[in-house]
Amino acid sequence: MLGRIGVALAVGFLKLLALIPYGITARFGDGLGWLLYQVPSHRKRIVHINLGLCFPEWTPERREEVAQKHFRHAIRSYVERSVQWFGSAEKLAKLIQVDSEVDLLDPDMPPTLLLGFHFVAIEAASVWINYSLHRPCGSLYQPMSNKALDDIAKKQRGRFDAEMASRADSARIVLRWLRDRKPVMLGADMDYGMRNSTFVPFFGVQACTLTAVGRLAKTGHAQIMPFVGEVLPNYKGYKLRVFKPWDNYPTGDDAADARRMNAFLEEQVRLMPEQYYWVHKRFKTRPPGEPGFY
Rank of each mutant, 00 (worst) to 15 (best):
R4C: 10
A10M: 10
F13D: 08
I20V: 14
I20P: 04
P21D: 05
F28K: 00
L35P: 00
P40G: 11
I46Q: 09
R62C: 09
A67H: 01
Q68I: 06
K69N: 13
R76G: 04
E80S: 01
A93T: 06
K94N: 15
Q97G: 06
D103C: 11
P111V: 06
F119Y: 11
A125Q: 10
S132M: 14
G138Q: 03
Q142I: 02
P143Q: 13
S145N: 14
A148M: 14
L149P: 10
D150A: 09
I152G: 02
A162V: 01
A165E: 01
R167E: 03
A168I: 11
D169V: 01
V174M: 07
W177C: 05
R181W: 08
L186P: 00
A188Y: 06
D191N: 15
G193N: 05
G193A: 10
F202Y: 01
F203D: 05
Q206R: 12
A207L: 06
L210E: 00
A212M: 11
L216C: 03
A217P: 02
T219H: 12
H221K: 15
A222W: 09
P226A: 07
N234G: 02
Y235K: 09
Y249H: 01
P250T: 11
T251D: 10
G252T: 13
D254P: 05
D254M: 04
A255K: 15
A255P: 00
R259A: 15
K281Q: 13
P288Q: 12
